[in-house]
Amino acid sequence: MSRKLILIITVFIFTGGYSLKAQTKQLSTSQQFRIAERFIRIAEPGELADSVNVWGDVGSSGRYLIPKGTDLARLISYSFGPRTLSDSQTQIDWSKMRVEINVQEYDNEEGGVAITKFKYRFEDPYPEGMKDFVLKNNHIIAVRVKRKPSFRDYLGVFASTVSAVASTIILLDRLGGK
């Protein structure tokens, strides 16, 4: 009788250990998915939340898990606001910048897409309805920062065109004149 008991305990230990190992492997895989690089959790655990996408010219785009009732202006703040168009050599005048925000909502009843658009300049107040616009689950927010072209932009296009034409003339001259 003791041999049968030892055999049963041994089989139980080995199969139980394998099951526990498989569960641990499955848990680590699901945790990796939950902590994905562009999945940002703002809502506290246990809090009612909506999941929305933020795309475009923001500091941190991705899928956001936000508390229910979050307005659009607060979500833009969570995503670190509109991204600047500057580098180490350029200083951008924010007063000339304008922001376009499109909020897409898929209408399940009719199968269509409803798009709400907001446009504003940085020196102007928020457009009417933007501050109070409450986000819902699966909204897609696309942010685009635009600016008028500067002298440097025009110069870059002009200089590259002149350079290409001059290079072509020199190449044809060298090939034709030996």
Rank of each mutant, 00 (worst) to 15 (best):
T70Q: 07
W94Q: 07
W94H: 01
Q89D: 11
L72F: 05
R74F: 15
Q89L: 13
R74N: 10
S60Q: 13
P67C: 06
M97D: 02
G69C: 07
L65M: 08
G62N: 04
I76C: 11
S61R: 05
L65T: 09
R74I: 14
R98P: 10
R74P: 07
Q91F: 08
L85N: 10
S77F: 12
S77H: 13
S60T: 02
S60Y: 01
L72K: 02
Q89F: 08
K68Y: 10
T90Q: 09
I66Q: 10
P82Q: 01
S86L: 01
P67M: 04
L65K: 08
S77Q: 11
D93L: 03
G62Y: 01
F80R: 07
K68G: 03
R63M: 05
R83H: 03
S77E: 15
L85H: 10
L85R: 12
S60H: 07
S77A: 15
R74A: 14
T84V: 15
S88N: 15
S79D: 03
P67Q: 04
M97Y: 04
S88F: 15
R83N: 05
D93P: 05
I66Y: 11
R63I: 05
T84H: 10
D71T: 11
I66G: 09
R74D: 13
L72W: 04
S86G: 08
I76D: 12
M97W: 06
G69I: 01
S61T: 04
